[in-house]
């Protein structure tokens, strides 16, 4: 453990990358997921099928595989495209690759969560809004979205924690997040337990903070319901 201590800062710095990738990936997943869920419950047939297909495919794909597809596959595709139209190719950084992969993959789960959260809203609450003369937009922003968010919070909290942990997959493509740095330090110090323990504690701390935040949000949104 002693040899690991000087590397503490180096490993913890990786936590910034882990949290950054998780937050960006999570935000992307929420955005794409919300869009998908509106398409799935929408009345247009083609977008509905496309969105349902998306959810099916991405729930089936292993996360690691998709990280590889984005990082290597997209890069090769961009290179080919750039060569054809004669511009310098954009390079996909490991950070971009992993956030794109996480966002796209977990959007599938978020879409399901949002759809369930939307279905759980009693129709009467929406009718009550319509009956006093609220516009369609106001009904959405004042009634549907807040209730949907409240219903979805517990499940979204879980998704956040899963993304946090799955972001460790980014270490295989060289993103210098906590697990990758712990592995490098383990190799350097020959004290794998020390390095991995530090990484584990990092994840514990972030998870504890995220859980506390989730409970705070849930408490703020009980609105008088008794909480067990």
């Amino acid at each position: 453990m002693l040899a690991t201590l000087p590397f503490l800062g180096y490993i913890v710095e990786g936590l910034m990358v882990t949290v950054g990738a998780t937050l960006v990936g999570f935000a992307g997943a929420l955005l794409i997921g919300a869009t998908l869920s509106t398409l799935i419950v929408g009345s247009n047939t083609l977008p509905r099928y496309v969105a349902s297909g998306y959810v099916t495919v991405f729930r089936a794909l292993p996360e690691l595989l998709f990280v590889f597809i984005v990082y290597y596959g997209l890069d090769i595709a961009m290179r080919a495209l750039a060569a054809r139209i004669g511009i310098a190719p954009l390079e996909i950084s490991p950070f971009a690759a992993v956030t794109i992969a996480l966002a796209m993959q977990f959007a599938a789960y978020c879409a399901e969560i949002f759809r369930d959260a939307r279905t759980a809203i009693p129709g009467g609450l929406i009718e009550a809004g319509e009956a006093i003369g609220l516009s369609g937009t106001k009904v959405r922003t004042r009634i549907v979205l807040p209730l949907m968010f409240i219903n979805a919070t517990p499940a979204l909290g879980n998704i956040f924690l899963v993304i946090l942990k799955v972001s460790a997959l980014a270490s295989v493509i060289g993103l210098e997040e906590v697990t990758r740095r712990a592995k490098v330090v383990a190799g350097t110090t020959k004290e794998p337990f020390g390095a991995f323990a530090v990484a584990g504690i990092c994840f514990l701390i972030v998870t504890a903070l995220a859980t506390a935040l989730q409970h705070y949000i849930e408490r703020r949104t009980t609105f008088g319901r008794s909480v067990a």
Partner: peptide, 29 residues
């Protein structure tokens, strides 16, 4: 983010795995 790395055209990129001392590892910094 995507274009962040695109500018370094003249650099030679050399890859190593820094968990293999004494060939490659990291310092405490």
């Amino acid at each position: 983010i995507l274009s962040g790395q695109a500018s370094a055209e003249t650099k030679v990129l050399v890859g190593t795995d820094a968990s293999n001392p004494p060939f490659a590892s990291v310092g405490t910094d």
